[in-house]
Design a protein around this nucleic acid. Structure first.
Length: 212
DNA sequence: AGAATGATCCTCT
DNA sequence: GAGGATCATTCTC
């Protein structure tokens, strides 16, 4: 049974969600800080607050939708793995790497323009004991402080690749933008190309981020 | 068909 | 701080 206030709340969230995609990808990465990642599982609700993100753009050699040619130029390349990146904004791009980890991205630009925001860390809010079970640890600060860790804690796998993140069971609920003073800017982690772009964003002094 | 690479994590020292 | 695990994806031959 849906109450009137629930409907109003849903409309507000829907508006904030759709307005997000008019910004550039680095701007969206900052605006996703503070948003809630929500997964409704058979074992219960899992909720986390996003505290760390990275932007990947369509002119960015580090982006999965971009290929660097021998002459140093870059082209867009749609492949079976990165197809979701070429789809509409607001969808998930989930991929598997290092033979072990799923990484969750949010597609940010209109279809054909491969850009996305990697969710690198969240602050666990609800379903923490469930997350501990999934992660195999009781150390709460180690549950979701990395892109591979948080997908394991939340039970997010490749089945969500292409999923509309405004819809259950896996959603992102935008919140108010953080004050600029609370947002730290740094270079991205774990990449070998375009390493100097300042496109990693995190909540300053948060104990839940992956790395200082 | 073969080889290289990787938006990571964990376990050491 | 360094190195290994582990395998899907992608490119090259």
């Amino acid at each position: 049974m849906l109450s009137v206030s629930d409907s109003v709340d849903a409309a507000i969230v829907r508006t904030a969600w759709q307005e997000l995609w008019q910004y550039t990808t680095p701007e969206i990465a900052q605006r996703l800080l503070g948003a809630l990642l929500v997964h409704a599982t058979a074992d219960g609700l899992l909720v986390g607050r996003i505290v760390e993100t990275e932007a990947y753009s369509s002119d960015d050699p580090a982006c999965h939708g971009v290929r660097t040619l021998a002459d140093g130029s870059t082209v867009h390349r749609c492949t079976p793995r990165n197809t979701a990146m070429f789809g509409p904004p607001g969808r998930a791009y989930v991929y598997f790497t290092y033979g072990a980890h799923y990484l969750l991205n949010v597609v940010t630009q209109p279809a054909g323009q491969p850009e996305a925001v990697l969710i690198r860390a969240v602050e666990p809010l609800e379903g923490i004991s469930n997350m501990c079970t999934r992660r195999g640890t009781a150390v709460v600060t180690q549950l979701t402080n990395g892109p591979g860790k948080l997908t394991q804690a939340f039970g997010i796998t490749g089945t969500y690749n292409g999923h509309d993140l405004s819809q259950p069971p896996l959603r992102i609920l935008p919140g108010d933008s953080l004050p600029v003073a609370e947002i730290a800017v740094a270079t991205r982690i774990g990449i070998s190309r375009a390493t100097t772009r300042p496109w990693r964003f995190y909540v300053r002094q948060s104990p839940w981020i992956s790395k200082r």
